[in-house]
Write a protein that binds this DNA or RNA. Structure first.
Length: 633
DNA sequence: ATAGGGTTAG
């Protein structure tokens, strides 16, 4: 018997048409599939809807990369003719195209329509929840999977665990892991990753050592855990075991992961080693993604010139590479360089929103007000980019720093979205620089309405009161903080010496060379004072301890607290443990304070050292008595 | 009546 024919292709059965579409999907061959679709439409597909054909079309578009066409076919089929597989096909399509929000919306619609759900559907759901950190839908899906008896499916359990890990719920993930009767290597690596990221590298190591088998993913997670947290030696020895002991090669995913860990902890030693490895194994033609990771790593390790070097040697540069370079330059306050390079970028790649975030923030950090305004003005007109809240934040920052408060305020009022903490917080920062107490108070109230526990803006305003001579107000604000139990995040500075990271907190006496460090500190303060250094105690109402009886002790105590700030200790350690004249690279988790900033400038000339400090916002390169930020930070 | 969806971890 002959199968029924389709009017568009009298020689082909519907069954054969479906097979054709399916092979177009697998190829993938978008052109041929589209022609088939066109022929089907012109011959009146909609008049005699063959749902099997529609489903094949849906599958084809879902696999071949056109999301809108897949959606169109999907919604063209009546719900009564769609089953679990059809819904899941579209969900998978959203997942592949990194559109998790659409995926979840579809899942919710699916449940509303009463379509039954199976293991394949849930894998896409958990994937989307993980990407969005949407634990609500995730828990819902977990419930469904239990009800359907899918707790025995290793893949479902793995994605559930991954979802919990990505949402920060390690306990839930561990619970699933323990209930599993059978586990795959993926189950182990998901748990390992969760332990390293959410508990500690140490407890991750315990999992790593007890795993029944270890693949390159497991090794990478462990090495990245060590390097990202500053354990250079442990990380490096593990890389050695991985390559020479187990014979693994580092592929480009591993290389990128390692470089990003180095960028995070500032470990340029290992970063350089990875660079050499990449050159040796890949030759001159390093993968563009790895090259971009190298640019990012060097820039974040304070070696912006090395970053430029890698960047200029790249054969091809895309937007991502350009953005990495520009954001690196922005962090280092090289505003003029960015403006010089930008016309070159336009010839090689199309700038996107991230490009302009770097460009505008560089203008703001370098005080290039007119240039910043010019690019912001052209954002939509010339580059067809709708300004996002980040761009408004840069502009408010730019205008505020320059003391143009009215314009900044007008811009905030004109924004199509309500201002967030970043926008208001940066204006508050400018208020503190320019002593605009009244506006500062207003901003603080607004900020506290958004986030009552924002320590930083409390501190900013109290420092403003103190500098403005309003001691009573400063004290009462301090009281509010104390009563609410809000505490400052402790500042930590770290410095690498001989491949080992040394960490210091304020007043730290735990380092084995504490005696020598504090002797150097005494000497440094003496020399600083001779050069005319005056401790900026006025800004420090907040860092001191409890109430004090007498004013003179007070001042001395505050001074002592200033002297033993973590970055000063790190510098002293650097001075006594490295060769004369070699530069010092220091990382700080918070912003550098005003006093340390002015002290570092002098230290760089007294000891003839280049001092590079990466703080939470940007880099400061102190050289011969001045800083690359031109005191504009 | 038929076939068709996904590979989770760095």
């Amino acid at each position: 018997m002959r199968w029924p024919c389709h009017p568009a292709f009298p020689s082909l059965s519907c069954h054969q048409l479906r097979s054709l579409l399916r092979s177009c999907a697998r190829r993938p061959s978008l052109g041929v599939g589209k022609k088939l679709h066109a022929a089907l439409i012109t011959s009146g597909l909609s008049a005699t809807p063959d749902t099997f054909l529609c489903n094949a079309l849906l599958h084809f578009y879902a696999l071949c990369g056109s999301v809108p066409s897949a959606c169109k076919v999907f919604y063209g089929i009546p719900n009564s003719h769609k089953d679990t597989v059809d819904w899941t096909t579209l969900m998978g399509c959203f997942a592949r195209h990194r559109m998790p929000a659409n995926g979840l919306r579809l899942f919710i619609e699916m449940r509303r329509e009463g379509v039954s759900i199976d293991d394949v559907t849930l894998i896409s759901v958990f994937n989307a929840c993980a990407r969005l950190s949407n634990v609500e839908v995730g828990v819902q899906g977990h419930g469904v999977s239990k009800k359907l008896g899918l707790s025995s499916s290793i893949k479902v359990c793995n994605t559930v665990m991954d979802m919990y890990v990505k949402c920060g719920l390690l306990g839930e993930a561990k619970g699933v892991f323990e209930e599993m009767e059978e586990r795959s290597i993926v189950s182990w690596t998901v748990i390992l990753d969760g332990m390293v990221k959410l508990e500690s590298v140490g407890s991750g190591r315990v999992v790593f050592d007890t795993m029944p088998e270890r693949n390159e993913v497991a090794w990478t997670i462990m090495v990245v855990g060590y390097l990202g947290n500053g354990f250079t030696r442990e990380g490096f020895s593990l890389i050695g075991e991985m390559i020479f002991g187990c014979g693994f090669m580092l592929n480009f995913v591993t290389l990128c992961s390692l470089l990003s860990a180095c960028a995070q902890s500032g470990d340029v030693m290992i970063g350089r080693w990875v660079h050499v490895y990449a050159l040796k194994t890949m030759g001159k033609e390093i993968d563009i993604i790895v090259e971009t990771a190298l640019v990012d790593m060097y820039a974040k390790c304070g070696r912006v010139d090395a970053a430029i070097e890698v960047f200029e040697h790249m054969q091809v540069r895309n937007v991502v590479a350009w953005n990495a370079m520009l954001s690196g330059l922005a962090m280092h306050g090289r505003g003029e360089v960015i403006l010089d390079m930008f016309p070159r970028m336009v010839k090689e790649a199309e700038p996107d929103d991230l490009t302009f975030t770097s460009l505008l923030s560089a203008c703001s950090h370098s005080g290039l007000v007119e240039e910043g305004c010019h690019y912001f003005h052209n954002l939509e007109l010339l580059y067809k980019i709708t300004p996002k809240i980040e761009h408004y934040a840069c502009m408010v920052d730019l205008l505020g720093r320059a003391g143009r408060f009215e314009e900044a305020w007008v811009l905030i009022k004109k924004m199509p979205m309500p201002p967030n903490e970043v926008v208001l917080g940066s204006l508050l920062g400018s208020c503190s620089v320019h002593g605009k107490l009244e506006l500062g108070e207003r901003l603080l109230h607004e900020l506290l309405r958004m986030d009552p526990y924002n320590t930083e803006c409390h501190i900013l305003l109290s420092n403003m009161y103190a500098l403005g001579g309003k001691q009573d107000k400063a004290n009462s604000l301090r009281h509010v903080l104390k009563n609410r139990g809000i505490r400052k995040v402790p500042g930590v500075s770290s410095i690498y010496v001989d491949g080992q990271v040394h960490q210091f907190s304020a007043g730290d006496k735990s380092h084995p060379q504490t005696t020598e460090i504090y002797m150097k500190l005494d000497e440094m303060i003496r020399k600083l004072r001779l050069t005319g250094y005056i401790p900026k105690t006025a800004s420090q109402v907040f860092s001191g301890g409890d109430s004090r009886a007498n004013k003179e002790n007070d001042l001395e105590e505050i001074e002592q607290a200033l002297f033993s700030h973590s970055e000063k200790l790190a510098v002293c350690f650097g001075l006594i443990s490295t060769r004369a004249g070699s530069p010092l690279y220091i990382f700080k988790n918070l912003r550098t304070c005003l006093d340390c900033h002015s002290a570092m400038k002098m230290v760089s000339s007294i000891y003839d050292r280049e001092i590079v400090i990466r703080d939470r916002n940007r880099f400061h390169c102190f050289k011969r008595g001045s800083c690359s930020c031109s005191d504009y930070w």
